[in-house]
């Protein structure tokens, strides 16, 4: 019974990984002669200024977006956990950004951020808040900010829904008892809510890290890695190496590096997370 499943895993996981490893040790390009080069592709990409820039941008992006996503996710989940008119509609509606393909989200936001006739500039100008249009997508820092905004916009719904599910699993009696004991909102959050959603927080954090490291679609559709290389992250850089510069060897080497880096980050996170964060320990 396990054989077909193993075969599928091998076909769709092991073979691509093996192929990437093989290609990463070769010059593989339609216009250059194919040959074995050992670790040269790794030396070239790791030593190149483009890699250093892309790696720095990726790390910076993850460092900003992951905490932001988790904190906003908790706040939105807490809001959705309250009873108010329209809550059900809000829960369904807020999933819409997540349901949109990331490339579509990127294109929608591109129309918002465009310089001379984007919706954001038009709105700000009409409201008298700016005298001249702001070059959102062609100014490096603003373009990075734009990518962050779109990333959060697309990822926040799922994060919040995960955390909402965890919130709803916390027994209401605990809050009732705390209220009787005179615990305030902050104390209830710190002593009941946070421990209750801790396993989900770990999962959501890991998810956010992975999504930040593999963010490609938004960059592709919103900024194409620009202006210059301001929003070029490792995944986009890998795509450029492979499919724009047609250097499949270097692209594969980069893909291997990204996979190893992601693995390392996850391992570090798992190591630093306190024991019992994922599973409640019982006597």
């Amino acid at each position: 019974m396990a054989a077909p499943a193993l075969l599928l895993v091998a076909l769709f996981t092991l073979y691509p990984v093996g192929r990437a490893l093989y290609q990463s040790t070769r010059i593989e390009s339609p216009i250059f002669p194919s040959r074995f080069v050992g670790l040269q592709n790794y030396r070239d990409v790791l030593g190149g200024i483009y890699f250093q820039g892309a790696a720095g941008t990726t790390l910076w992006f993850a460092a900003v977006t992951v905490p932001l996503l988790v904190i906003l996710g908790v706040l939105v989940a807490l809001l959705l956990n309250e009873s108010f008119v329209g809550n059900a509609i809000l829960r369904v509606g807020m999933l819409l950004p997540w349901a949109l393909p990331a490339t579509v989200a990127g294109l929608v936001w591109k129309w918002i951020f465009l310089d001379s006739w984007g919706a954001l500039n038009a709105g700000l100008y009409t409201a008298g808040l700016i005298d001249n249009y702001i070059a959102w997508l062609t100014t490096p820092d603003l373009a990075r900010t734009a990518v962050i905004v779109v990333f959060i916009w697309t990822q926040l719904p799922l994060t919040a829904i995960f955390l909402l599910a965890a919130l709803q699993a916390i027994p209401g009696e605990l809050y009732d008892a705390a209220a009787v004991d005179g615990a305030g909102v902050f104390r209830r959050f710190w002593n009941i809510t946070l421990p209750g959603i801790r396993p989900m927080l770990v999962i959501v954090t890991l998810y956010a890290v992975l999504m930040a490291f593999t963010n490609f679609d938004i960059v592709y559709s919103l900024t194409q890695g620009g202006p210059g290389t301001a929003t070029t992250m490792l995944t986009y850089f890998t795509w450029v190496e492979s499919f724009k510069k047609l250097d499949f060897g270097a692209g594969s080497a980069l893909a291997v590096v990204i996979a190893l880096a992601s693995l390392a980050v996850i391992l570090v996170l798992v190591r630093v997370i306190p024991k019992g964060a994922l599973v409640e320990e019982r006597a």
Partner: peptide
């Protein structure tokens, strides 16, 4: 040149960096 298309993929980000002042 045969490599012109590939070279231009490197040139464009460089030009962008120069235009950014980086």
């Amino acid at each position: 040149a045969i490599w012109y298309g590939i070279w231009s993929e490197s040139f464009h980000p460089l030009l962008g960096q120069a235009l950014n002042g980086e």
